[in-house]
Design a protein around this nucleic acid. Structure first.
Length: 878
DNA sequence: TCTGATACGTA
DNA sequence: CGTACGTATCAGAC
């Protein structure tokens, strides 16, 4: 083997280099939205990637310190004792950095009681002996001693971590005047301030080198210390022990026992998906391609890149051909319907081997109807719009067996994988061919419907591999059937009276104008009342009101703050501002509803099935899940939601206190279970227990307090938050919590236990097995960790409620169809459904709704369903 | 034209 | 220092 063919081993001191990066890069530019600092991680990885690309090592490892404690501190407790503790902002980055390196399949080494440099020394020594060219990268000068003909040190220069100086034996001699092996002797004499190792006073590098050259070795020098003249000679004689101690401590261990040797450190292909995951969490974008560039496609590794198989060319078929092709297939197929103007345009069908496609037509609909409507398993990517298009074309799709978008969301609810392209990137590490929309004559052809199906099937295989059984059950039993119900609800829409809305809108506009005029009079000028910035100027500069809660850009002017101000420093402007806000907000909502009314007189919302991290739906365009209900004018808005033509009435049904019922079920708290079984009003019951009075003697104030407490529990409320909410002393809030938990102790036990379990598992689970990961429960960043704890507390409760509502919804939807009723579900608002009832079906529908919602889950407390009917939503609601 | 911050509507 | 969402508006960056 010639020199040029020798393998190259690169070993890196992760700790010291990340630490340098931490101080070199501004924290402000390197923080995630959640507040996690990433400057050390970014700086290290950036340097690391450049290094790997430049040096092309065949073998690779990164070592870290475990703690400040090591065998050196055992020997000499003052070792490094002068160093201030690493800032928590730095130490918190280390686990994430290690996670990123693990995702890159870079070996990370640590050993209790051993410093990173000792690990480097050991690997360098073993590597050189085994015939490697060794590169050591460290920010600790002690590693100079490792340099030999086979070992080169890469040391960050003062300019920054990106500039590395190469120390070969010649370079060391040039800089220090002595060979690398003597460097620790110099350091022992001079001392190392940063390690709290004092040397001989007045002795610097020059003197040390002179002495060592003169006497040939440190031992010889120390033996002849009495022959050195002058003040420095005296200093040396007084500090002989210090020098010996320094020399003993700065010698790096070369025989640390490690679980791996150099041969085990061959560069591995990176785990592309894991790297994407962690980089997404760290919000690194530009670094991602650099990592793939440096570590991604190593041509020497045969197994590195999964061979990219070209998608089959989809054969264009006629209706008979399509039918014949489908009949010849076995098992699950992918179906892709392209939608134009809400109707099917083309259809593609794929297996893992082949694909066909055709333009949509009545003929193909008839040719394929049996198959489309049958239970034959079909994979559709983002199925809902396609299901809707088919339904508009008179085809009721059956056999939906998988939707990669839904499945990907169930597996990783926090990830923004909204397209097949995202999933192809994540799960296949390939790029879905997409036509560049900016080009009139596309250079790159996009995948055709048939090919999209082929990709969908391959992604499906991969997602199924990593889906736990409980999550797969949620997909099959809840999400896929819900998808069909949602498609019908969106198609149906809800009738809204434009007349009612526009009349109210004009009224509100006039009201807002009037309020604004009066507000301007109060401050003798006109400002934009919708601009928080201008309002700050008015409130705090002009009116000299006391500064309020701080925000990122100044001081808050939100409703709670304004109400507080009005109490402490009454001013007519404040009240007018609040009124103006209310009027304009209502008008906004009305306007957005009005423009959403279609030619059919109905608004068709879109339910985002993957829009939340807990399992809830969300609603957009328009959002029909946040229609006002609290104040007087909101009734007029709800009154505009009317029963449609050809129907008799609207029926609303909502679960009462479903989250507290789930809390009772999950905690098994006997008091809470009794509350729900007693038939007594929940808050009255709880209030009587907490305050030790008869239910009839629970005052409204008591009820308000326990109600806030009960609801707060579900969100991880603190005594501070409770006191703020109820405007009571923190001590009183604390007392309330104590009393509450004294009566309902199992609730507290459950909440504690569920977070502890989530910390162990890394995720929470609903009653039905829906999971939500919480990596931040392990974060050393307190803000991140406590946010995660509250979310983890809430997730199983909110998520179980969402599961139950979905089951109720889809059971009602299905039974209305099987019973041949025309009535239909229109809206879902988390714990409420709105149903449009066909003439004469009222009682049947009410019975179905009550039964199906009530039976959606078998809990240790009953599910109570409140039902109302009326010609509009305001009357039907209660 | 796009994005972040603020404010506010719902469960 | 209370969870989960979507939308409108302003202001500043591009």
């Amino acid at each position: 083997m010639t020199d040029s063919e020798k393998p190259t081993l690169l070993v890196v001191d992760g700790h010291s280099l990340a630490y340098r990066a931490f101080f070199a890069l501004p924290v402000d530019n390197f923080s995630t939205k959640d507040g996690q600092h990433t400057n050390g991680i970014y700086g290290f990885l950036s340097m690391f990637v450049n290094l790997v690309k430049a040096e092309q090592p065949t073998h690779l490892a990164v070592a870290f310190d475990t703690s400040r404690h090591s065998f050196r501190t055992d020997e000499y407790p003052e070792y490094k004792a002068n160093r201030s503790a690493s800032p928590a902002e730095f130490t918190g980055q280390i686990p994430l950095l290690q996670e990123a390196l693990a995702a890159m399949n870079v070996t990370v080494l640590t050993k209790e009681g051993i410093e990173a440099d000792d690990i480097l020394a050991t690997l360098a020594t073993e590597g050189a002996a085994a015939g490697y060219d060794v590169l050591v990268c460290s920010g600790d000068r002690d590693t100079i001693q490792l340099v030999t003909d086979d070992v080169t040190l890469l040391y960050p220069s003062v300019q920054g971590v990106s500039q590395l100086k190469r120390y070969t034996p010649d370079a060391v001699v040039e800089k220090y005047g002595l060979p690398p092996a003597n460097y620790p002797d110099i350091a022992a004499l001079v001392g190392e301030t940063s390690d709290n190792l004092p040397g001989v006073p007045k002795v610097g590098e020059k003197t040390a080198v002179k002495w060592l050259n003169q006497w040939g070795s440190l031992d010889a020098l120390l033996e002849n210390a009495d022959k050195i003249t002058g003040v420095v000679g005296g200093n040396l004689r007084e500090h002989l022990d210090d020098v010996r101690r320094n020399r003993s401590l700065n010698a790096l261990l070369r025989d640390v026992e490690l679980p791996v040797g150099p041969d085990d450190l061959a560069v591995q292909p990176i785990d592309a998906e894991a790297v994407r995951d962690i980089f997404a969490r760290l919000e690194f974008r530009t670094l991602l391609p650099r990592v793939f560039d440096a570590l991604g496609g190593d041509a020497d590794e045969a197994s590195t890149a999964a061979p990219t198989v070209a998608a089959p060319v989809a054969a264009e078929v006629d209706p008979a051909g399509a039918r014949a092709w489908v009949d010849a297939q076995e098992g699950e197929l992918a179906l892709t319907v392209t939608v134009e103007g809400g109707l099917p345009a083309r259809i593609g069908i794929a297996s893992l081997d082949a694909a066909v496609e055709a333009p949509w037509s009545d003929d193909i609909a008839e040719a394929l109807r049996d198959w489309l409507e049958s239970d034959a398993p079909k994979v559709l990517t983002d199925a809902k719009p396609q299901v809707k298009a088919l339904r508009r074309a008179g085809v009721a799709l059956g056999g939906l067996s998988f939707d990669p978008i839904l499945a990907g969301w169930l597996v990783r609810p926090s990830f923004p994988d909204k397209t097949l392209g995202d999933l192809v990137g994540r799960y296949l590490d390939e790029k879905l061919p997409e036509a560049d929309p900016r080009q009139l004559v596309p250079e790159t052809e996009g995948a055709t419907p048939g090919q999209l199906g082929w990709y969908a099937l391959r992604v499906t295989e991969r997602i199924r591999e990593e889906m736990p059984a409980s999550v797969a059950a949620v997909l099959t039993d809840i999400e896929l059937p819900t998808l069909g119900a949602l498609a019908d609800m969106e198609l149906a829409g809800v009738a809204i009276s434009h007349e009612k809305l526009s009349a109210f809108s004009s009224e509100l506009a006039a009201r807002a104008d009037d309020i604004a005029t009066r507000a301007y009079a109060e401050i003798d000028r006109e400002v934009n009342l919708g601009s928080p910035k201008q309002l700050q100027d008015v409130l705090f500069e002009q009116l000299h009101l006391p500064k309020t809660r701080k925000t990122k850009t100044g001081y808050s002017t939100d409703a709670a703050v304004l109400a507080d101000l009005q109490e402490s420093n009454p001013h007519p402007f404040l009240d007018l501002l609040l009124q103006h806000r209310e009027a304009t907000k209502l008008r906004q909502i009305i306007e957005s509803l009005d423009v959403a009314i279609g030619p059919d007189g109905r608004a068709h919302t879109t339910y985002l099935q993957t829009g939340s991290q807990t399992g809830r739906l969300s609603s957009t365009d328009p959002n029909l899940q946040n229609i006002p209900i609290r104040n007087e004018e909101s009734h007029r808005i709800r009154a505009a939601f009317e029963v449609g033509e050809g129907y008799e009435t609207l029926l609303t049904a909502d679960y009462s206190q479903i989250e507290m019922r789930i809390m009772a079920h999950l905690s098994g708290d006997e008091g809470l279970i009794e509350a729900f079984n007693s038939g007594e009003d929940l808050h009255r019951f709880v209030g009587s227990r907490v305050f030790g009075v008869a239910p009839a003697d629970v005052t409204p104030a008591m009820r308000t307090k326990v109600k806030a407490m009960s609801y707060g529990l579900v969100y991880g409320l603190s005594a501070f938050g409770l006191s703020k909410q109820l405007r009571i002393d923190q001590s009183e809030a604390k007392l309330l919590m104590t009393e509450y938990f004294a009566r309902f102790g199992a609730v507290r036990d459950y909440l504690r236990e569920s977070v502890a379990q989530a910390r162990v598992d890394g995720y929470t689970e609903t009653i039905f097995g829906r999971r939500r990961p919480f990596p931040d429960l392990a974060s050393p960043n307190r803000v991140l960790r406590e946010n995660a704890e509250r979310a983890a507390l809430n997730a199983p409760i909110q998520g179980s409620a969402a599961d139950i509502m979905k089951l109720g919804l889809l059971h009602i939807h299905d039974q209305l169809i099987t019973d041949g009723l025309r009535s239909r579900v229109l809206l879902q608002i988390h714990d409420e459904l709105v149903v449009e009832v066909a003439p004469g079906e009222g009682d049947a529908v009410e019975s179905i709704v009550r039964q199906r919602m009530g039976d959606a889950a078998e809990l240790s407390v009953p599910l109570d369903v409140q039902i109302g009917r009326g010609a509009n939503w305001d009357v039907a609601g209660h």
